[in-house]
Design a protein around this nucleic acid. Sequence first.
DNA 1: TTGTAAGCGTTATCAA
DNA 2: TTGATAACGCTTACAA
Lengths: 352, 352
Amino acid sequence: MAEQDKASSTAKRAAKPTINDVARLAGVSKKTVSRVINRSTLLNSETRERVEQVIAELGYVPNPQARALALRRNFLIGLIHDNPNAQTVLNVQQGILEALQGTEFELVVRPVDRRSPLMLEDVRAFLNRQRLFGVLLLPPISENDVLANLCDELGCRYVRMGSAQLDDPEHLVASNDREAVREATTYLVDQGHRLIALIEGPRGFRSAAERRAGFEQAIEAAGIELPRNYIAEGNYTFESGIEAANRLLDLGPPPTAIFASNDEMAAGVVHAANQRGLSVPENLSVIGFDDTAIAAHIWPPLTTVRWPIIPMARSAALKLVGSPGDRTKAAAEPSFFLSSLVRRASVAPPRQ
Amino acid sequence: MAEQDKASSTAKRAAKPTINDVARLAGVSKKTVSRVINRSTLLNSETRERVEQVIAELGYVPNPQARALALRRNFLIGLIHDNPNAQTVLNVQQGILEALQGTEFELVVRPVDRRSPLMLEDVRAFLNRQRLFGVLLLPPISENDVLANLCDELGCRYVRMGSAQLDDPEHLVASNDREAVREATTYLVDQGHRLIALIEGPRGFRSAAERRAGFEQAIEAAGIELPRNYIAEGNYTFESGIEAANRLLDLGPPPTAIFASNDEMAAGVVHAANQRGLSVPENLSVIGFDDTAIAAHIWPPLTTVRWPIIPMARSAALKLVGSPGDRTKAAAEPSFFLSSLVRRASVAPPRQ
DNA sequence: TTGTAAGCGTTATCAA
DNA sequence: TTGATAACGCTTACAA
C-alpha cells in the first residue's frame, strides 16, 4: 500500500514496522498502541479499532526482545528435565508445543543432571539470566521441593508433573500411578498368577514408590505372600530391565509374571526372556508402564499402563501460560489424569 | 562484600548488578565494560583486568534480553524439524545441547509440518520475530532449498544436516548414506541372499533416494536381477514397515532378506514376520538404518547401519555458534560423517 | 480515556 | 584506547 511506503519513510526495505510506525499512522501515542497490544480495558473502542486496523495493515508484530527487556520477563517456557526415558521427554515436548501453538511463547529445553551437586546452581543461573516466563518440571526432578522453591524464590512460575500430590493444584499436574499399577497387578492375579515379581524404579523416584505401593496393595489384597527377593530394583533403562529380569529368573521358583515399572525395563525383560529361550507370554507374562512407542513395537506387543503423558504436558503448559483466547478451556482442562491398563499380547495364564 | 552493598545503594536485595554497576565500581564507562564483555581487541590490558575483576566480584552476568534488543539478535538456536522419527529428533537435541553446554546459547525447538502450505510462512514469522542467532535444519526439511534461502534472506544463519551434498560446507553437515547402504546390501549378498527386497523411505526425501541408490548399486554389482515389485515404499514409520513387509512377503517368491531404510520400519518388518509365524533370521533376514535405541531393544537385535546422528548434531551446532573458547576444536570437528554397518542377530544365510 | 517522560540493560556512533 | 550520547522497541509511572 502507498500508506505503508509513506510510513517507512527512510531507508531499507523490509524493515519491520515498530510500535512507533503504528502510533504515527493511527494518530495516537505509542502508549495507546501498547494498550491495544496488551488488551487494556481502559480504551475507547473506537480508538482500539483504529489502532487494530493499522496493526493489521502494517502486519505489525511486537518485538519480543523489547518486551522482554521492558517487562523483565521473556516469552519463553523452559522444560527442565532429567528423565531417563527418551520417548517420555519427546512426548512431553509434543504436548507442550501443542499448548503453545499459536501463542507468542517458545519452548526452551534444558536437561539437567539430577546427581550433580551443581544442579541447583545451574538452574538458578539459567532462570536468573533467561528470566523465563515459566518452567515445566518433569519427573523425577519435578519431585524435588528445593527446586520448586528455587523457582518461586526467583519469581519464575512453575508447574510440576508428577505421580502424586506434590504441590498446590496451581503448580501441579498429576496422575494416579498407584491405582493404575494396582489394577495391572490385579489383572495378573486374575489370570491365575501367584508368582509375580516387580522390577521397581530407582530409589528416590516418587513414581517408583507409587508404583511399588500399588503393586504391593494388589498382592496383599490377593492374599499372596511374596518372597522378599521378588522385588528387584532397576533404573528405568532397558539394560537395567535385562539385568533385573535375569536376577529374577534365576530365582527358585522363578516368577511366572513380571511387572516392570516402565516400558523400557519391560522390553528388557522380554529381551532377557528371549535370550534364555523363554517365550512371552507362554512361559512368562510381562506388563510395563507408560505405553511409549516401544510397547507396541516389540514382539509380542506389550500389555502396559497407558500414562497420558501428552495430554498431561499440554495441560501443564496451559496452566503456565493461561488459555490462549478462550478462558473456559484452560479451566476445563483437568489437572489430574487417569492411567489405565492397555491389554495386548504379553500376558497369558501361567502354565500348569 | 561491603563494596557490593555500597554499589547497590538502593532498594531491593538480590537486584542483579548491571553494566552500570560494573562501570561505576571499575571507574570506567559502560562502553568500556561492554568492550571487555565482547572481547574487543582495542583495550588496555590493565583496564581490562580491572574490569574483569569487578565483574568477578559482583558476579555480573550480561542481560541476554538487553543484548538481544541492542544487537537485534537473540542468543537462541532454533531446531527446525519435521522428522517422523522420535528417537532421531531426541538424539539431535542431545547433540546440539552438548555443543551448547557452557555457552550463553539456549535451544528452542520448533517442529513444523512439511506438508502444510503455511509452513514457509510459519517459519518466516518465527525467524522474523525471534531473531534467532541461527537455526539447525534436520532432514527431511533440511533438503528444502526454499527454506534454506528463506533463512538467508532473513539474515538467519543456518546449518543443514543431510545425507548428501546439499549446500556449501559452511551450511552443511553430511553423512554417506549411499555407501553405507551399499555396504549393508553387499553384506546380505555375501551371506548368500539373492531374493533381497527394499523398503524405501518416502518420495521426496533425499535420504530415501540415497539409500535406494546404494541398494541398487549393490544389487547390480552382484549381478542380481530383482523383480520391480521387490521395492516397496514406506514412510519411515513402524506401521508402514509392517504394511510394506506384508506386501513383500505375499509375493511369489517372497524375499529371503529385507533392507528397510530406517530402524522403525525394520522393526515393523520383524513384527510382521512374527505375526506370520516367520522367525527372524531363520526365515527372513532384516537390516535397518539409524541404529536408534529400538534396534538393540527388539528381538532379535537388529543388524543396522549406524548413523552418527549425535556427533553430527553436535558438529552442526558448533558450526553455527563457533567453538566456545578453543578455536581449533571447531575447525577440527569434521562435517562429513561416516555411517557403518552394525552386525547383530537379524541376519543369517538363507535356508536352502 | 489518552499522552509524556523516563526507564529496561545493552551496543553503535563518533568524537576525544 | 576511551567515553558521551543516542539508539534498540517496548512498558510503567505519572499527568492531563
